[in-house]
Every structure is written in structure tokens, then in C-alpha cells.
Design a protein around this nucleic acid. Sequence first.
DNA 1: CTGAAAGCGCTAACAA
DNA 2: TTGTTAGCGCTTTCAG
Lengths: 334, 334
Amino acid sequence: MNVTIKDVAKKAGVSVSTVSLVINKKPAITEETRQRVLQAIEELNYYPRRIAQGLASKRNGNIGFILTDYHFSRAEPFYTKIFLGSEFEARHHNYYLLLTTIQNKFAQSDIPRFLLEKNVDGVILAGKVPTGLIEHISGYGLPTVFVDYTPPKGKYFAVLMDNIDGAKQAVGHLIEKGHRKIAFIGGDISHPSIQSRLEGYRQALMEANLVFNEQLVITSSPNTTDIDGYQSTCALIQNGEPLTAIFAANDAMAFGCNRCLKEKNIRVPDQIALVGFDDVELAIEMEPRLTTIKVNKEDIGAIAVKSLVEMLDTNRKINGKILAPVELIVREST
Amino acid sequence: MNVTIKDVAKKAGVSVSTVSLVINKKPAITEETRQRVLQAIEELNYYPRRIAQGLASKRNGNIGFILTDYHFSRAEPFYTKIFLGSEFEARHHNYYLLLTTIQNKFAQSDIPRFLLEKNVDGVILAGKVPTGLIEHISGYGLPTVFVDYTPPKGKYFAVLMDNIDGAKQAVGHLIEKGHRKIAFIGGDISHPSIQSRLEGYRQALMEANLVFNEQLVITSSPNTTDIDGYQSTCALIQNGEPLTAIFAANDAMAFGCNRCLKEKNIRVPDQIALVGFDDVELAIEMEPRLTTIKVNKEDIGAIAVKSLVEMLDTNRKINGKILAPVELIVREST
DNA sequence: CTGAAAGCGCTAACAA
DNA sequence: TTGTTAGCGCTTTCAG
């Protein structure tokens, strides 16, 4: 019905295996025959059937992409963009991404089908995923890449954003602007990312020979939302400890912070400068527009796929982590 | 290496074809042998390899899901949720969704690979897609479903939300509440959805024997954003035409509307009641919380897949459209 | 109602 | 350097 490798072989006057070798860019083919084959392919508008290649080669050319439905469908399209970057990169390596969402709690019943049906060569896990699932997956022995999350135990390979460096850039920027009394509002300090950002804050101060003043570090809020930023800032101001700048652990908190300052008639950036982290879409809507640390989500996704494909190609697993670079975006709040 | 259909056959003491018949739920199998096979499958923890099934059956069990990257990654997770619903439904029918994003303008180079490689049995197109692509796809003769968009020409099958009914519900609700002077702010009236919502507004008035007052219909804004809602409302108030309620063509406009009313110290809902459309995530954040029309995005996705699967199973295409039901969500603004 | 056997379209030894 | 051929794991006639 459709044009197959046989048709190409016939047209080019060679055997199917020769065509196969050409398709798969194997060496040991004369340039001349290669051209003949290529031309036949072109003329017949031939594309190898994925499924047949897969069955014969025992690789199916699919990568499973798993994330919780919460992460996938929340308003800030963080993971969506990571997926976007992944999908784009996967194309270049001629892989398909099979996206599936899972519940927050692990249930046998929502083990991704592509695992059961052995339909993927490797797996990407984005964001926090239930450990039960992680353990289950490790049973398949598939190359696996974690994105923006590291499992609590075991060996793994993860692509993370460089939180420490981002925080250092943020604080360094403030220092450059002449600020010496810089506060940090952090919220939920149990979160690894927040910890790293605090660490970056600490390092930046140290490298500039500034003292780390505990009075200027607020990590008492339970979460890292707008509200937490608001409350932390209020607490900070109440403290009375003099300060000229605030580094918020993320943009959401920066928004809350800004709201509090506005209420207290403290002008940003004149009286207090403000830096966030994440560069969410709303950062540009804040008044004043928020200086923040940008994380290139598409890049993270691309790196994850690239790493996974490398494991697939070389047929060996990699451990460790890759830190995706982050970037300071200077706007009006500093 | 892995457990195959042969292993199952051997274990159950039957032939592979019998096992195949059982797997595919074909009739003409004794209940007794069926049970034997099922048990063998269970004991061996057997899952048929997708790829092998596909090659043999000439169906690959994949559905292509195409949308523009703009639609996919924007903050309001409308299409994301549609995809979510689709993916979920696809699971039940044992199909995989191959998601790919495309550019807004059609380019030969980003023709989805799954089309070239004949890797999908059908296609779902979500949101507005370039007509060039539509034409290209129709060349494959694959069953196709449009979601939240209807192509400008040709036969098609589309899943749309019931805009007219939604508008009728919204306005009907206001009428029930005793409102008689109800305004409509619409923005870009060239958009089919907006047109339908205006039509629903008109019908609701008519059915309640209320006059359609052109002074109360503002469709002069170029878009349908927050800003447009703001401007339209200001214009409306300036008009001087008495009114007690406003139906905004979407939530974004309702937000702008609310902002304008707040500035003019007009209390919602006491002085003017307000209804939106879409039930975006922010609707619940508005002050007062916005009464609006909810569109169940997951349902839309599910309907699309269900329809497509039906075409696939019965092997014939359907034309026409399905209107997904919408629902009035009463909150504080009315 | 069940089994034998011929492919699906391709890859990958192995030969030549 | 290229061709022959045996599968990959399953579905699907066709017999029986």
C-alpha cells in the first residue's frame, strides 16, 4: 500500500540492506550507491515506518515524559516550557516524547502504560514525583533523567537550575548597585532550591566581605507564595533593622514583598531595591517591573533530552547532575 | 529476552493465535481456554509489545495532537487542560498521544514527523492552526478532529464549546436576579466565539421579552483582553444609558470591567452585577469573586479523543460539530 | 473453536 | 562494499 524499503531498493537497483545502511547513516557504502539510494528515496518520497524500524532494531525511539498533573496544568507554565524544550530537542534526535501525567500519590493503577508495554527507551521525570513511582521505574532498568528534582535516595542523574549561582548573581547585582544591607526572605527553607538560594546569598555576601546578619534573613513563613512574601516583608520592616535591598527567594514572594512595601509607602527601588528569582511571566507586570533571575526552561528540557539520548546512544547510564545556567534580568525594581 | 506471546502460548498449552484472539477480545474462544490464557498472561506478567502489535495490525495506536506553541505555553492553561483530558481518555482506549507544537505560520520544515513517518492513526488539531498545515494534513486522509476551532473551508469535524448556550445561561441568570438593563461588552466581534456569545445574549433577552438595546452593547474594542474590558466599561458608563448588570464576553474583559467600576466607585454586585465567561483560574481571585461560565476543558479533550477513536474503530469519518456543555458558576459578582 | 503459517517493514548478522 | 536471509513479536487469513 505504502512505499516501502523494497520499493526503494528496486528503484535504486540495490538490496534492501543497502538501503537500510544508507538510511541509518552507516559507513561502508560507496558514495555513488549512497547517492543512488538517496535519490530513489527522494523520488519515491519514502519515509521508513517508525514501527517497523522499532520492531527490528529493538529500540522504539520513544522517550517517556512523566510529571504530575498538578505540575502540568498550573498557571505558571514552568514545566510546560520544559516539555516544549524537550520535545524540540527530541525531534532533532529523532525521538518521540510520550507525555503522561500522574497523580501526586503513587498508585499501581497509574503506572504509565508506556512502561508496561515497553514502549519507551528512556524516561524523563519532571518535578517532584512520588517515590513509589521512582522505585517502580528503577525496576525497568531504563535510563532515567530527573528534571528540577532529585530523588531522596539512590543514584540518579538530574538536570537542575543553578540556584546558588542565581542567588549570587542577584545579590552581587545589589552589591554592585551599592547596597550593603541586603535582606533575604525565604519562606519554606526545607525546599532544596530555597536552601541553595540562601546559600548563594550567603556566599555573595562573603565574597564581598559583608557580614551575614541574621536579623535580615526571614525564613519563618511556611510556604513560598505571594502571601509569605507579604508577611515576611512586614516582619522584616517591623524588625527595624536597617536595610536598603531585599532578595526574595522567588518571584511570587517578591510580589508579596512589593505589595507590603507599597502599603507602607516605601518606594521601590528608591528606598528599597528588590530582586526576585524565576522570572515568571508576571514579573514584567509588577510595578515596578521586577528585576529577577531568569531560568531558561526550554534549555532545561533540551539538556534533559540531550543527556538521555546520550545515555541511549552510548548505552550506559550517567550519574550526577547538570546545573542549567541562569541569568540576571535587570528591570526597574533595582 | 522479554516474555512474549509465545511464552504465554506455551504456558497455557495453546497456540499463539489463540492467545492473540484472547488479547484482542475476539469472540469464538471457549470461556475455559480464555481463562487458561488469561491466567498464563497474569502469571507471566505479560504485556503485548505495542510496536509488534502495530506492525502486524497496520495500526499504530497513536494519535497526533497538534497545537501552536503559543497556545501550549501561555499562562492560562486552557489547551493544556484539554490535552490532559485527551490524554486521559486516550488511555482508556489504549491509544497514545503524540504531542507536537508548531509555529503560528506554516512551514514545510515543521510538518510533524509523526505524519511523515506514518506514526499516527488520526490527528487532533487544537486551537487555531495555520491553514497551510490543515491542507497538508488533509492530504494524508487521516481522520482529523478540530478542537476549539473550525477551519475556514472544507468538511471537518470539530469539538467546540457551547458559546450560545453559555451566554444564555449567563444572561438568564441575571434576568432571574431581576436585572432588566443588561449590557454586553464584547471586544473583537470578528471572533466566532464572541459572535456566538453575543448571539446568546440576544436570544436570552428575546426569550425574556426584553428589548435589545444597542446602547448597551459595546463591541468597539479591538481585542478581548483586560484592557478592552476596562475601556469598554468606561465607554458604557460614559454613555449614561442606565444599566444594572454587565455580561462580559470573557473573564479577562470582566476583570477590566471590574477595575473600571471600582475606580468609579460603583459597587459590584450591589449597583452593577457582573458575569464573565470561561472561568479562568483567576476568576476566583477577583474581588468580588467572579460569576462566570465554566467550560470543562478536560471534557472537551475527552470528547475529541472519543470521537476520533470512534472514527478509527468504525473506519469512517464523521463531519459536523459537537458542542461541549458549559455551566454557570455563581459567585459573588451577581 | 483452535492451530499453522504467512507476513507487517525493517534491521543485522553473515556471506560473498 | 553489497546481498541474502533470518528474525523482531504480533495479527490474520485459512484450514481443520
